[in-house]
Computed example of a mutant assay.
Amino acid sequence: MSVYKFKAKTIEGEEISLKQYERTVLLIVNTASKCGFTPQYKELQGLFETYKDQGFSVLGFPCNQFMGQEPGKEADIKTFCELNYGVTFPMFAKVDVNGVYAHPLFVYLRKQTPGVLGLNTVKWNFTKFLVDRDGKVVKRYAPTTKPSDLAKDIETLLQKKPVK
């Protein structure tokens, strides 16, 4: 199993297969526009711009499960991200990352990389999941981890060739 088995709706409402990102190193992040970590959008965009031509992408998944910090509709979220942080990496429709209605992708991500104390939940907005070129979840990063601190891990994965 890999992340490529999942589908998700883009922020424009089009359902796509994550298979289109096959052989791409991915950083999957649950995001929010009204969170203390929202300025991380700038560093996420920086990572995307730095590594996109080498086979890397950030995938942003807005989530309103943490103190209602993503209350807007998809069009509002998209505009906010573009105007305030110059976001050009792929953004998706709002999802739940925990609970009964959690998006299947996040159920998978959580199971592959348990969090603090082995808990199988996403702790907060801007939890980050690094995925290798084979679609395998390699590491989970806490919301407090700055995206720029992931550069070495991303570079390491970019140097590895896919197994498939």
Rank of each mutant, 00 (worst) to 15 (best):
I77R: 06
L59C: 04
I77V: 15
N30P: 01
F89N: 10
L105R: 09
N64H: 10
Q112N: 04
V97D: 00
V107D: 13
P104F: 03
E49G: 12
A75P: 13
Y51H: 15
S33A: 06
T38E: 12
K111W: 00
F106R: 08
V107C: 06
S33D: 06
Q112G: 07
L59D: 01
I28K: 06
Y41D: 07
Y85T: 07
G55W: 01
Y108R: 01
D53S: 13
K94D: 03
A93H: 08
L47D: 06
V97T: 08
N64T: 02
E43I: 01
K52M: 01
T31F: 00
K94L: 03
G99T: 05
I77Y: 07
S33V: 01
M67T: 11
S57L: 02
Q65I: 05
N98R: 11
T38L: 12
A32P: 12
N98S: 03
T31Q: 10
S57H: 03
C81V: 04
E74M: 03
E82D: 12
V95T: 10
S33K: 10
F56L: 00
P90E: 12
F106V: 08
G55L: 01
K42R: 15
K111M: 12
T88N: 12
Q112V: 01
L44F: 02
P90I: 11
Y51C: 02
A102S: 13
T31C: 07
N84S: 13
Q40W: 02
S57R: 11
K78W: 10
K42E: 13
F92V: 03
E82K: 14
Y85I: 00
V107R: 14
I77F: 02
E82W: 01
L47H: 00
T50L: 05
A32E: 09
F106G: 06
C63M: 05
V87C: 03
T38H: 11
T79H: 13
P71Q: 00
V58A: 07
L47Q: 03
C63T: 05
V58W: 02
G46Q: 14
N98F: 07
C63W: 00
M67Y: 14
L47V: 10
G68T: 04
E43K: 10
F80M: 13
L47K: 04
S57I: 05
V107K: 13
F48M: 07
E74N: 14
G60W: 12
G72I: 06
F106I: 07
K42C: 05
Q112M: 13
T38Q: 11
R110K: 15
G72S: 09
E49K: 14
V100I: 08
C63E: 00
S33R: 11
K94T: 06
I77W: 04
F80Y: 14
T50N: 09
G60C: 08
F37S: 09
V95P: 13
C63H: 00
P71S: 00
C81I: 09
M67Q: 15
Q112S: 09
